[in-house]
Design a binder for these strands. Structure first.
Length: 350
DNA sequence: CTCGCCAAACGATGGCCTAA
DNA sequence: TTAGGCCATCGTTTGGCGAG
């Protein structure tokens, strides 16, 4: 990436925030994009706000013992600590990088920009920095309390999609806060959490964290998991597909809003799933009925996803609920109108 | 306005390294 | 041997655009 653009992104990342994030804004982002993006001083408070909100909601909505509630609060504390440290390190590194770029005190070598005190990747599509030495251990309670055979179906779906096969334990890295909770709810127990990296996207930074579930062992390889998901689906069991879709599913808002029902998941292994929709998508099913099946398969998991405001879950609900779809359309139109208003105001001012 | 395509943008995958 | 950290690449997603 050219230097000017890198400078621009650093400025975007470091720009001052007029007002701290509100819960409404944060939930809006999570339920439409899934990822939190913006200036450094917005993104990290936003993450923390989200974590606080979710932990409180879980404590209210699920039947938990006092011990489990205490455990949740400890989890929140650990996440908060991690995010604070990550915030600090990100700010320091990006500030050092920006200063160096402005003053011309840097060198570019092997796709990296080196500054006194920090360096960043600039060769990759998205420039990013690595976060070092920030990790924590915690416990996450079994909030879903599903019978083991049901839980395992959900685990299988995650394994077939986003869950990595890198270690002996199940793990995942994500920049989407809702995924942290959605995944860890199926891999409860001891978790090791690590601050991974910060991307400089064109809309500000996004922060990803890495979680390892230490109370579980891998049971399936990627390929096994995928073919098992398909086997279950053929036998009419949609639960594994549900979490597989949460991981790799394609959320195409515009299509659902127009009344098109296409259930597709990422195509890395599309041939395993039979029908191929395009180079990148495997068509799993079409029609409103398929989304209804997914929604039903969610069961108590759906309650968690509701409070997480997971964007992919919103998508499933949109697809199955005509009233909701109409409301969503109206909301989007209102947003556009507000946006237009803001733009013209800005024109008048300048 | 709708559809389908395309490429930039994004971020996940997974190998390698090292210290304990 | 394994837990944790570092690194680079490449597959997927999304928004934008042109055609119908």
């Amino acid at each position: 990436m050219e230097l000017n653009k890198i400078k621009q992104r650093l400025e975007l990342a470091l720009r001052p925030v007029e007002k701290p994030p509100t819960l409404e804004e944060v939930l809006e982002e999570v339920s439409t994009r899934g990822v939190l993006r913006g200036p450094v001083d917005w993104v990290f408070p936003a993450w923390m706000l989200y974590v606080d909100y979710v932990v409180q909601k879980i404590a209210e909505s699920f039947q938990l013992t006092e011990e489990e509630k205490a455990q949740l609060l400890q989890f929140r504390h650990a996440m908060r600590r991690l995010l604070l440290d990550m915030w600090k390190q990100t700010k320091e590194k990006l500030t050092a990088l920006h200063k160096a770029v402005v003053e011309g005190m840097f060198k570019i070598e092997r796709g990296r920009l080196y500054a006194p005190g920090a360096w960043m990747y600039i060769n990759a599509n998205t420039p990013h920095i690595k976060i070092n030495d920030i990790s924590t251990s915690a416990r996450f309670s079994d909030v879903l309390k599903l019978p083991h055979e049901r839980l395992e179906l959900f685990q299988l779906g995650w394994r077939a999609s986003d869950e990595s096969q890198k270690k002996r334990w199940p793990d995942m890295e994500t920049a989407q806060p809702w995924q942290v909770f959605a995944w860890v709810a199926t891999r409860y127990g001891d978790v090791y959490i690590r601050a991974a990296m910060v991307n400089l996207t064109h809309e500000g930074v996004s922060a990803s964290i890495h979680i390892i579930a230490r109370s579980w062992r891998h049971r399936w390889s990627k390929a096994e998991a995928i073919s098992l998901v398909v086997d279950y689906l053929r036998r009419g069991e949609w639960a594994p597909l549900f979490t597989a879709w949460l991981g790799d599913g394609n959320a195409r808002w515009s299509k659902v809003l127009r009344g098109k029902y296409i259930l597709s998941i990422a195509a890395k292994e599309s041939w395993r799933l039979g029908l191929v929709a395009s180079t990148y998508e495997a068509l799993v099913a079409t029609g409103r009925e398929a989304f209804v099946k997914l929604r039903e398969a969610a069961d108590v998991y759906g309650e968690l996803l509701d409070l997480l405001k997971a964007h992919k879950w919103t998508y499933i609900k949109l697809a199955t609920d005509d009233g909701l779809r109409v409301a969503y359309k109206l909301m989007k139109e209102r947003e556009k109108a507000v946006l237009r208003l803001k733009e013209s105001l800005q024109r008048i001012r300048s």
